[in-house]
Amino acid sequence: MKASVMLTHLRPTLVIGLALTVITGLAYPLAMTGLAGALFPAKAAGSLIERDGRVVGSGFIGQNFTKAGYFHGRPSATTAPDPADATKTLPAPYNASNSAGSNLGPTSKALAERVSGDLAALRAENPTDAVPVDLVTTSGSGLDPEISPEAALFQVPRVAKARGVPEESLRALVTSRVQGRTLGILGEPRVNVLALNLALNDLARP
């Protein structure tokens, strides 16, 4: 008798648990994935960017451009396992499999030294303009594909010198690539670094 009563109370719990698992764990994700693929196929596929028939990156994830002839993104604090010691990590900028910030606070000596070094290098490149804050600070994800228009314009002298093109041409290129606020109110004006560098290649090969 007691087993029968227990089963009576247990059955609804099991049925509801199974139903919620199917609905929220299977049906809903599949429905949203299908809807996103139908309404926003490019974004649902990762906003992949192709050039000459091959994928060169994503509009959602930054890349670590280091050459003087390219615009650079903001610093990235992502890491990857050390091949020589699995208990340690190594810097791996824009590592999409390990999205994270540095978790270093304002009293961190390592953070202060890194920012000071970046500031010195940037001021050597362009001693006349103030260094935009996003060129020396990392984002929470470490994967930001965009920088502020001011950060892109700050780099114009270096890129122009490396490529041997007029600064005016590069400023015009940057301005043409500025994206406004979403719906006119959300976020800040920004420039996608990969898209800008692809346009830069079209303007003048390094």
Score class of each variant (00 low, 15 high):
residue 96 A to I: 11
residue 58 S to F: 07
residue 109 K to S: 09
residue 103 N to C: 01
residue 84 A to Y: 14
residue 114 R to H: 09
residue 90 L to A: 08
residue 129 D to A: 15
residue 76 S to V: 10
residue 50 E to T: 03
residue 98 N to S: 10
residue 65 F to N: 11
residue 50 E to F: 12
residue 19 A to G: 00
residue 32 M to V: 15
residue 15 V to L: 15
residue 80 A to Q: 11
residue 54 R to W: 01
residue 20 L to A: 15
residue 13 T to I: 15
residue 97 S to K: 14
residue 127 P to G: 15
residue 16 I to G: 04
residue 62 G to L: 06
residue 119 L to P: 05
residue 83 P to N: 04
residue 98 N to Y: 06
residue 117 G to I: 14
residue 21 T to E: 08
residue 27 A to G: 00
residue 102 S to Q: 04
residue 118 D to W: 14
residue 112 A to Y: 06
residue 90 L to Q: 05
residue 78 T to N: 00
residue 57 G to F: 10
residue 72 H to P: 01
residue 112 A to D: 12
residue 130 A to Y: 02
residue 111 L to V: 00
residue 114 R to F: 02
residue 48 L to F: 03
residue 23 I to M: 08
residue 59 G to A: 15
residue 18 L to D: 02
residue 89 T to I: 11
residue 113 E to H: 12
residue 100 A to C: 02
residue 35 L to V: 13
residue 20 L to Y: 09
residue 109 K to F: 08
residue 19 A to C: 00
residue 43 K to G: 01
residue 37 G to E: 01
residue 78 T to L: 04
residue 86 A to R: 14
residue 50 E to D: 07
residue 106 P to C: 11
residue 106 P to W: 04
residue 53 G to A: 05
residue 31 A to R: 03
residue 42 A to F: 01
residue 66 T to Q: 14
residue 68 A to F: 08
residue 98 N to Q: 13
residue 39 L to Y: 03
residue 113 E to A: 15
residue 64 N to G: 04
residue 47 S to G: 05
residue 64 N to F: 12
residue 81 P to S: 12
residue 127 P to T: 05
residue 85 D to A: 15
residue 68 A to C: 09
residue 32 M to N: 02
residue 50 E to I: 00
residue 105 G to A: 11
residue 24 T to K: 04
residue 21 T to Q: 14
residue 107 T to H: 00
residue 30 L to Q: 04
residue 89 T to F: 02
residue 52 D to N: 14
residue 59 G to E: 10
residue 33 T to S: 13
residue 90 L to G: 02
residue 17 G to E: 12
residue 113 E to K: 14
residue 25 G to L: 08
residue 124 A to Q: 13
residue 110 A to M: 09
residue 46 G to H: 05
residue 89 T to L: 10
residue 66 T to F: 05
residue 54 R to F: 09
residue 92 A to M: 06
residue 11 R to M: 15
residue 115 V to G: 08
residue 23 I to A: 14
